[in-house]
């Protein structure tokens, strides 16, 4: 499954998702209270220790998720050294890294179903005024279910192309992929209908 939740169970997995999501913006905001590089470096060190409390494997996994940030950090460093504001560059880079490391920590220690649970709770007022929110929750689950399937469809089409051509398929499989996706969508709509559809609070289940 394309979930970023870490399989390594840490103490932070047991904290309710709502509490973690609530703490995140406040901690991120706190990173903006100081402009001193050494203070931000200290904050980053604390975050590293936070990861380390989940074990070395957990820290490595977290660092892996954040590795994709280095081109941005490099860009910031180059830009600021060109404009002669090294300290400002360092502050921005440290702040960015610390904020994303915090967010990633929450992602890695929170199960998807718990995240959806928080969303359901947040959407409760909309439900009270009569707007169906079930579709939103269902849509999230379906994206997770069908993304790997769409990727697989793409691989299958590319393979079918390669079996009969020496050139790479490239963009030419986009249209058949879209057609396949629409066809799959029809089937899934039928499967949903077979089990009551989305709007089951409407009498007889029809929209």
């Amino acid at each position: 499954m394309i979930s970023l939740t870490s399989p390594v169970e840490t103490w932070a997995h047991r904290i309710p998702a709502g509490a973690k999501l609530l703490a995140l913006p406040f901690l991120t905001l706190a990173l903006f209270l100081t402009g001193r590089p050494w203070a931000l470096a200290a904050a980053l060190l604390v975050i590293v220790l936070l990861y380390l409390s989940g074990g070395a494997a957990f820290l490595r996994q977290g660092a892996g998720h954040l590795r994709m940030l280095w081109p941005f950090l490099l860009l910031i460093a180059v830009w600021h050294s060109l404009t002669g504001q090294m300290q400002a560059g360092l502050v921005v880079a440290l702040r960015l890294l610390a904020a994303l490391a915090l967010a990633n920590f929450v992602t890695m220690t929170t199960r998807l179903s718990d995240m959806i649970g928080v969303l359901t709770w947040l959407l409760a007022p909309l439900r009270r005024i009569g707007l169906p929110t079930r579709a939103v929750e269902l849509a999230i689950a379906m994206v997770l279910r069908f993304t790997p399937m769409l990727v697989e469809n793409g691989h299958r089409l590319a393979m079918s192309w390669r079996a009969r051509s020496r050139r790479k398929p490239g963009w030419r499989i986009v249209v058949p992929m879209a057609a396949l996706a629409l066809d799959d969508a029809d089937h899934v709509a039928e499967a949903l209908r077979a089990r009551g559809g989305i709007l089951n609070d409407i009498p007889d289940g029809r929209s």
Partner: peptide, 21 residues
Amino acid sequence: RRAALENVGIIFQNPDHQIIF
């Protein structure tokens, strides 16, 4: 459809067309 949910279930030929979650 409400009565249908209680009375009849269907299994499609391709399980990938049926599994939603």
